[in-house]
Amino acid sequence: MGLAGEISATRDGSVHSGRLLGEFRRTALLVPLSEGDDGGLMSGWQGGVRWIYAFTDEEALARFAVARGAGAGAREWEYLSILGARLVDAVIPTVDGPTGVAVDVADEDGSMLFPPVVGIVPDAQAVDAPSAGTDRAEAV
């Protein structure tokens, strides 16, 4: 079914969240790089949480680019292909502050947030863990 299909099924109420999370962890996501000189991953802030933008395919990434005002003749967007598991287990621990993953955010009916909570991100980065946020590295 793939991650996009699991998101759709979850939104319809026909899939358990554990199955969705498993598919997220197994999926190679496309994460655009920021335009600045820092070479970091593109992200945004909402509700005190940094959300790393990730996409299930190039078409979903293109819809996001268009929604951000990148039309015909706009620059090419560089991106990293990374497994969801590696994103939450290896990348998020290097970011300062609460960080989650926003998947396919330009698709109103196909987007999904994976927040920085126990069971999604490592406990040390989870905002709902008993000792949340005590040993965070600086943003890369």
Results as ranks from 00 to 15, higher is better:
residue 1 M to W: 08
residue 3 L to T: 02
residue 4 A to H: 10
residue 5 G to R: 11
residue 6 E to N: 10
residue 6 E to S: 11
residue 6 E to W: 07
residue 8 S to T: 14
residue 9 A to M: 07
residue 11 R to F: 04
residue 12 D to E: 15
residue 13 G to N: 04
residue 13 G to F: 00
residue 14 S to I: 11
residue 14 S to G: 08
residue 15 V to N: 04
residue 18 G to V: 12
residue 18 G to C: 01
residue 19 R to L: 08
residue 20 L to N: 00
residue 20 L to G: 04
residue 20 L to I: 06
residue 21 L to I: 11
residue 21 L to G: 01
residue 22 G to L: 00
residue 22 G to I: 06
residue 22 G to C: 12
residue 23 E to C: 03
residue 25 R to M: 13
residue 26 R to Y: 10
residue 28 A to F: 05
residue 31 V to A: 12
residue 33 L to W: 01
residue 34 S to Y: 07
residue 36 G to H: 14
residue 39 G to R: 07
residue 40 G to T: 12
residue 41 L to K: 06
residue 42 M to G: 07
residue 42 M to R: 15
residue 43 S to N: 14
residue 43 S to G: 13
residue 43 S to R: 14
residue 45 W to S: 15
residue 46 Q to A: 14
residue 48 G to H: 04
residue 49 V to D: 00
residue 50 R to C: 06
residue 51 W to S: 02
residue 51 W to I: 08
residue 52 I to S: 03
residue 52 I to Q: 01
residue 55 F to H: 13
residue 58 E to T: 14
residue 59 E to Q: 05
residue 60 A to W: 10
residue 60 A to V: 11
residue 60 A to F: 04
residue 61 L to Q: 00
residue 62 A to F: 09
residue 62 A to E: 15
residue 65 A to C: 09
residue 66 V to S: 03
residue 66 V to K: 02
residue 66 V to A: 10
residue 67 A to N: 02
residue 68 R to Q: 12
residue 68 R to C: 13
residue 71 G to P: 07
residue 72 A to R: 14
residue 72 A to Q: 13
residue 72 A to Y: 14
residue 73 G to K: 05
residue 74 A to E: 11
residue 75 R to S: 06
residue 75 R to P: 00
residue 76 E to I: 02
residue 76 E to L: 05
residue 77 W to L: 15
residue 77 W to A: 10
residue 79 Y to N: 03
residue 80 L to V: 10
residue 80 L to I: 02
residue 81 S to W: 03
residue 82 I to S: 10
residue 82 I to T: 10
residue 84 G to R: 07
residue 85 A to G: 06
residue 85 A to E: 13
residue 85 A to K: 15
residue 86 R to P: 02
residue 89 D to N: 15
residue 89 D to H: 11
residue 90 A to D: 11
residue 90 A to H: 02
residue 90 A to L: 04
residue 92 I to F: 01
residue 93 P to G: 03
residue 95 V to S: 02
residue 95 V to A: 02
residue 96 D to G: 00
residue 96 D to Q: 13
residue 97 G to Q: 12
residue 98 P to D: 08
residue 98 P to N: 00
residue 99 T to G: 04
residue 99 T to S: 08
residue 100 G to I: 06
residue 100 G to N: 08
residue 100 G to Y: 08
residue 101 V to G: 04
residue 102 A to F: 03
residue 103 V to G: 06
residue 103 V to L: 05
residue 106 A to D: 08
residue 107 D to F: 11
residue 109 D to C: 01
residue 109 D to H: 09
residue 111 S to Q: 12
residue 111 S to T: 14
residue 112 M to P: 04
residue 113 L to I: 05
residue 118 V to W: 01
residue 119 G to R: 09
residue 122 P to Y: 09
residue 122 P to K: 06
residue 123 D to R: 12
residue 123 D to S: 12
residue 123 D to C: 03
residue 123 D to H: 05
residue 123 D to W: 01
residue 123 D to M: 07
residue 125 Q to L: 11
residue 127 V to S: 05
residue 127 V to P: 06
residue 127 V to F: 00
residue 127 V to I: 15
residue 128 D to F: 03
residue 128 D to Q: 06
residue 131 S to F: 06
residue 131 S to G: 02
residue 132 A to Q: 01
residue 137 A to Y: 09
residue 137 A to H: 08
residue 137 A to E: 14
residue 138 E to K: 04
residue 139 A to L: 10
residue 140 V to F: 15
